[in-house]
Amino acid sequence: MDTPTETCCQHHLEHNPTARVKALLPQDEDLLDLADLFKLFSDGTRVKILYALLESELCVCDLAEVLNMTQSAISHQLRTLRSGKMVKFRRGGSTIYYSLADDHIFRILEQGMTHVKE
């Protein structure tokens, strides 16, 4: 059985949607930056860390206990999240506390979970 191939053989006489869509597309650099942002969500450990930080500002030791992981594994993922501007930190004496970088991260997680639960 032959598999149909998709071709566009109908010309749009009254309007040209491709021209409108092309004009509305963000710049390639912005799209690549967005793809990089979503890559940060592609690791389950990073998502767990972000969800833990939704609830409270935590240090590496706290995150390791909450997620039942080693401090080394948590630190590695936090470096990635910090470089992606998804978490921020503050120093409290000799301890570093982590939190979500901004409300955008909260909303992305919230929307993603809503989508998953539907």
Rank of each mutant, 00 (worst) to 15 (best):
R46E: 06
P26I: 05
L50V: 01
D30I: 09
N68H: 15
A101C: 13
R107V: 15
A35L: 11
L53V: 05
S42L: 04
C9N: 11
I49D: 00
H11M: 12
T45V: 09
P26H: 00
L53M: 05
I105D: 01
G44Y: 08
Y51L: 12
A23Q: 13
L25M: 10
A73P: 03
L58A: 15
L32N: 07
P26Y: 04
Q27M: 11
L34T: 15
L50G: 01
Q111E: 04
K22L: 11
T95K: 09
Q27R: 15
D103S: 08
Q111L: 02
F106Q: 05
C9H: 11
Q71N: 06
C59L: 00
Q27N: 14
C59I: 01
H104Y: 14
K22M: 12
L58C: 15
K22P: 01
L13A: 12
M113P: 04
G84F: 03
R82G: 03
M69T: 09
K48D: 09
C8A: 10
C59W: 02
G112M: 10
D62V: 06
E65Q: 06
T45E: 04
E65P: 00
V66I: 07
K48W: 02
T45P: 02
V60H: 10
M69S: 10
L78Y: 00
D103Q: 13
D30F: 10
R20T: 13
Y97K: 10
L13D: 10
D103A: 14
